[in-house]
């Protein structure tokens, strides 16, 4: 029987801070205790509670791949109290982390299939974990396509990684910015993600679509996928709802009878359709 106080976080030292976009940072975190690092493991899709002692906890996915074993990364936008406190941290500072919580992207079930990632704005981080996970196991999958859009060029996160993905010949990367968000030397697409998706018209045969983005993007992307022939079971997304505990006790992240923290955050479109729109 596990007799641990489940509210006590791991202590994590910020090893590296990357400014991804205006207001968006990535922290690379290492366990202060070596034993914690050894016993810790997670899978793509899971999330954690990151905290500043004295300011509180905030929920983000683990944005690094489980195949990169000696650290975890998270990417967040400075918005509220906790993310503002996190944003003021410097390399070397110690923060709290609880996790991993939630279910996973069933990567093992996707072996042999093509993967189509569709992400918008700050929703690339939850997908980055599974993208790198798939790239680190590249031979197990068919075509890998990434469609990523943001409002403006400067809002695109993971710019170096986008370059890397774009230069690989085993990945097809399409980036787009909203009309008016382009710079003079922008070489990507111009237009909203659902429209660009419709234009690129990826084949749905033997393909899994993983969609993550703001509610409005999700809303208009599902019908396009539907039109392209994707079935409800081949479309995956990851939900976010306000959370405190992360393990089904604090009572606020439920969508109907389903807890995003315990039963999610990863859901198929079929599951999503059976739930009330409380997300």
């Amino acid at each position: 029987m596990d007799e641990k106080n489940i509210y006590v976080p791991y202590r994590m030292r910020i090893e590296k801070i990357t400014q991804e976009a205006p207001g968006v940072k990535t922290f690379r975190l290492k366990f202060v205790n070596d034993e914690d690092a050894l016993s810790f493991s997670f899978k793509a899709g899971q999330f954690g509670e990151y905290s500043i002692f004295g300011a509180g906890e905030s929920t983000f996915c683990i944005a690094s791949s489980p195949t990169r074993k000696d650290y975890i990364e998270c990417t967040f936008r400075q918005t509220g109290k906790v993310t503002s406190a996190l944003a003021s941290c410097e390399e070397g500072n110690v923060i709290g982390f609880r996790g991993p919580y939630g279910n996973i992207f069933p990567l093992d079930d996707w072996k042999g299939k093509n993967l189509l990632f569709i992400a918008g704005g700050i929703a690339l981080p939850p997908m980055r974990c599974v993208i790198w996970n798939a790239l680190d196991r590249r031979s197990e999958f068919g075509n890998i396509t990434i469609l990523y859009g943001a409002r403006t060029v400067s809002d695109l996160v993971y710019k170096h990684e986008l370059e890397e993905w774009g230069s690989r010949n085993d990945v097809k990367l399409i980036t787009t910015v909203d009309p008016g968000g382009e710079t003079p030397d922008w070489k990507g697409e111009k237009g909203f993600v659902p429209a660009v998706l419709e234009k690129m018209a990826p084949a749905s045969a033997n393909t899994i679509a993983i969609v993550c983005g703001p509610p409005v993007m999700i809303k208009y992307t599902f019908p396009v996928l539907d039109k392209l022939g994707f079935t409800d079971d081949t479309i995956y997304t990851t939900l976010e709802n306000r959370m405190k505990c992360g393990f089904g006790k604090c009572g606020r992240c439920n969508v109907g009878k389903v807890y995003v923290c315990k039963d999610g955050p990863v859901f198929t479109y079929r599951q999503l359709k059976s739930l009330p729109a409380e997300y």
Partner: peptide
């Protein structure tokens, strides 16, 4: 049984 989790801080120390 629903609950909130909050931090309270006094200088360099505090409680969750």
């Amino acid at each position: 049984s629903c609950f909130d989790i909050q931090d309270e801080k006094h200088g360099k120390e505090g409680v969750r």
